[in-house]
Design a protein around this nucleic acid. Structure first.
Length: 307
DNA sequence: AATGACAACAACCGCCGCTGG
DNA sequence: GCCAGCGGCGGTTGTTGTCAT
């Protein structure tokens, strides 16, 4: 295993650290443009940079790489981040794949600065989760399942615990769901913009789809036509995923896009639902509202507890 | 104007998995 | 099979900017 000092330890103890200078950026950019990405340790050597390969890679990926979006995370991107985080937890690089031009580091920082504050109150939520964990283990005992004991791991743990067929299906489901999240929020953005005449099945979706990593073909059409407000489909989704994630360490939940229902509310005005006693956030005005009776109806989807 | 709190961002650290010798 | 090197990831820390007092 490589030493704790990082790459190229045998040749350098004195790698430069700290902020990159414009000159260093220029050297790195020129080198990568000429020779391509990869072989980061040799980049450091050959480009005349007194930086570790790790540092070069990070600088390129997070800052210099072409196509990076600069500037604030948009409300649509925020929505996607929230939902994908609910899906995957702190899998920042995975989430970043669904936000073209955004880096995992950017998303991670965004999450920390915007949602760190809510950690405190989430302790209450964790408490309830451990109760859920107990309950489910009890339940499992009753049902005499073949399930593995590590169901409370993060999602990849679930996947690893499955047999081949289940795992394939699950990976497809995850990707499918992530696409839905991305497409839904993009559509919300379009609906928000009255000047846009692109509809939900229009070319915009093709653009979005083409920007996403390739997945199994069997879901491609489905991803576009799937309606977020379709209650039956929702129940299937969240019955399945909510059930899987009940024991997760990560937040989980579901959303409802008010805009899909008889034009109630404004586009982008969507909520997370959870059990009574939790809170929901209104993404339009950032209000945090205590959940009362209304949310009880949704608690069977997995609790959807936030904040 | 000074300063303290907070947010936003950049960069580093440590670990893990993969791969080739 | 073992090991070293590499690439990548997530967590954490450091720095800078902004705003309120």
């Amino acid at each position: 295993m490589v030493s704790a000092m990082g790459w190229g330890i045998q040749e350098h103890q004195g790698w430069r650290k700290g902020p990159w200078t414009p000159e260093e950026d220029k050297l790195l950019t020129e080198y990568v443009n000429l020779n391509g990405e990869g072989r980061w340790s040799s980049v450091a050597r050959c480009a005349g940079l007194n930086r570790s390969g790790k540092s070069c890679r990070l600088r390129w990926v997070n800052y210099l790489r072409p196509g990076l979006k600069r500037g604030q995370i948009t409300p649509q991107e925020e929505g996607i981040i929230i939902e994908l985080h609910a899906l995957w937890g702190n899998k920042w690089s995975t989430i970043a794949r669904y936000l073209p031009g955004r880096t995992d580091n950017e998303i991670k920082n965004f999450w920390r600065t915007h949602f760190k504050k809510k950690e405190k109150s989430s302790r209450k939520q964790q408490k309830r989760r451990s109760q859920l964990l107990k309950d489910q283990k009890l339940q499992k005992g009753h049902n005499n399942h073949h399930d593995h004991d590590d169901h409370h791991d993060q999602l990849p743990g679930h996947v690893a615990a499955m047999d081949g067929a289940d795992q394939t299906k699950t990976n497809q489901d995850i990707d499918h769901q992530a696409r839905d999240v991305t497409i839904k929020h993009e559509n919300m953005a379009l609906t928000n913009n009255p000047s846009s005449d692109q509809n939900i099945n229009g070319s915009h979706n093709q653009i979005i789809q083409s920007s996403l990593p390739p997945v199994n073909v069997m879901y491609q059409d489905d991803a576009v036509s799937y309606s977020w407000s379709d209650t039956t489909a929702d129940q299937e989704y969240y019955g399945l995923w909510g059930g899987l994630w009940n024991l997760d360490d990560q937040p989980y939940g579901r959303t409802n896009n008010n805009n899909n229902n008889n034009n109630q509310g404004t586009a982008g005005n969507y909520y997370y639902y959870g059990a009574a006693g939790d809170h929901i956030i209104n993404h339009s005005n950032k209000n945090i509202i205590p959940i009362q009776n209304q949310a009880r109806a949704f608690s069977s989807y997995g609790g959807g507890a936030f904040f």
